[in-house]
């Protein structure tokens, strides 16, 4: 849904006069909503602009993506960037990719990583209406801010909207 939201928002920004380039790692979702300029990286979700710690490759992917997007002249077109994930096993069950599954070789319900499970179980994360802090320290830090006086989105770090 992220790719859908971003694709639709890109269309709105462009219609308001702001040129956009969008990365995507979900090609079929992107082509369905047709944002103005897209560059596709064929990797598991969670790596739209690269893999952890691979700074040189990340910089090259970003440069390639920006340059390819900049050259586009056809509205709604998607450019495929010349990169791939180290192996293709994740494509057997792309919705279930996780770092731990790739490292351990087994899927979320004990299935073999790289094989499509025979029966599917609901392994999706529950959606919650409370803030989902990455660290407890983040919650404490946010709680310490007086939100009555400060903008909730910018922490006073940037000019308020």
């Amino acid at each position: 849904m992220c790719h859908q939201s971003v694709g639709l928002i890109a269309r709105d920004l462009e219609a308001a006069g702001y040129p956009t380039i969008g990365f995507t790692s979900a090609r079929t979702i992107t082509t369905r909503v047709r944002p103005p300029r897209s560059v596709f990286l064929d990797v598991p979700l969670g790596h739209t602009t690269g893999a952890p710690g691979e700074t040189v490759t990340q910089r090259q992917i970003l440069t390639d993506g920006l340059e390819a997007g900049h050259r586009l002249t056809t509205p709604g077109h998607v450019i495929d960037l010349p990169y791939r994930w180290i192996d293709d096993r994740w494509k057997a069950d792309p919705l279930s990719w996780s770092r731990s599954a790739q490292e351990s070789g087994s899927g979320p319900d004990g299935s073999h990583f790289g094989a499509r499970p025979v029966t599917r179980s609901d392994t999706r994360n529950e959606r919650r209406s409370e803030p989902q802090y990455q660290l407890e320290d983040d919650r404490d830090t946010a709680d310490a801010v007086s939100w009555d006086e400060q903008c909730r989105v910018c922490l006073g770090l940037a000019p308020c909207p």
Binding site: D42, P52, Y83, W85
Partner: peptide, 16 residues
């Protein structure tokens, strides 16, 4: 390395 130059021989994942 997790991401390398080249192209996958398989089609892109179809999340739809």
């Amino acid at each position: 390395p997790q991401i390398v130059p080249g192209r996958s021989e398989l089609r892109p994942a179809d999340y739809l």
